[in-house]
């Protein structure tokens, strides 16, 4: 089903996480709203295959990759389109040109970097935009280099490079929340030193503002790192109930704190099956 919304409601990193975790294939279109800085490009397109990013561009004319190649001066427009016609249908243009010996692997990488990493990373700073994910859109072979990037990698790179976090400010975890790991082993992502340090605290007990203090980071910085861990599927934000510091109360024992530790209370007494049966029967009478 088509997914639509506004980036101010559901941010790009969240959207990427959703598309990756759902192994989605299709076209994500982002229309910028009242963006005066980019008069020419109001639409951004990102193609996904099985949750991975395969191409990006700002037009649907199937000429974007060719233009990029021409811009590099590696080949003229016409030469590329002539060669492209010999490509098998569904074969990514980049791969086809490489197989024909026209482009090197290095050149392809550079193209992909320009087409996907650079363009997509810039979108993280968008204050708002309307998005639509169309799972029925065909993959555009002519826009594809044949290279792919996981949405997670693009998110990590984009958010690390992001200078102005204003667009995502509301999405950042609360400084008084803790982080809890949702992966069983050490993350396989290549984290940077700061991210590793914060990762070490994903045990659900320390508030992000305290992690910041511990690591000599600003609270904002720690929130941003925490957000990266969350949207890359490594951790979840968890509200913790702040226990008052002992200085205020002069608590000589820790019994007062124990009550808030999960599992300290016994939970509910189980109900019988006949109870459940009766309840369901009763409720069915209301349907």
């Amino acid at each position: 089903m088509t997914v639509t919304g506004y980036l101010a409601d559901f941010s790009l990193p969240e959207l990427f996480q959703l598309l990756e975790q759902g192994s989605k294939t299709g076209l994500l279109t982002i229309c910028t709203l009242n963006d005066k800085t980019s008069i020419n490009h109001h639409n951004h397109h990102i193609w996904f295959s099985q949750g991975q990013i395969v191409a990006a561009g700002n037009s649907l004319d199937q000429q974007g990759l060719m233009r990029l190649i021409a811009q590099r001066g590696w080949m003229g427009d016409r030469a590329v389109s002539r060669l492209a016609q010999t490509c098998q249908i569904h074969t990514p243009l980049g791969l086809c040109l490489k197989n024909q010996g026209v482009l090197t692997a290095e050149q392809l990488k550079l193209l992909f970097y320009t087409q996907v990493m650079r363009q997509v990373c810039a979108l993280f700073a968008l204050p708002d935009g309307w998005f639509q994910f169309d799972p029925k859109a065909p993959l555009p072979a002519a826009e594809m280099t044949g290279l792919i990037a996981t949405a997670t990698d693009v998110t990590l790179a984009g958010l690390r490079a992001l200078k102005d976090w204003a667009a995502l400010d509301e999405k950042l975890p609360d400084p008084s929340s803790a982080l809890i790991s949702v992966v069983e082993s050490k993350p396989s992502l290549r984290l940077n030193p700061n991210e590793w340090q914060v990762w070490e605290f994903t045990n659900g007990t320390m508030a992000i503002k305290d992690i910041a203090q511990q690591l000599n980071l600003t609270v904002a910085k720690a929130q941003q790192i925490a957000f990266r861990l969350i949207v890359t599927g490594l951790a979840e934000e968890m509200p913790i109930m702040a226990a008052p510091t002992t200085s205020a109360f002069d608590l000589d024992d820790s019994t007062a704190l124990e009550a808030s530790i999960p599992g300290a209370t016994t939970g509910a007494a189980p109900v019988s099956h006949s109870f459940l049966q009766n309840l369901v029967g009763f409720l069915k009478g209301k349907v």
Binding site: S176, T246, A248
Partner: peptide, 9 residues
């Protein structure tokens, strides 16, 4: 409030 007590809570 005494130090350490969170106003919001």
């Amino acid at each position: 409030l005494p130090g350490g007590m969170d106003e919001e809570r």
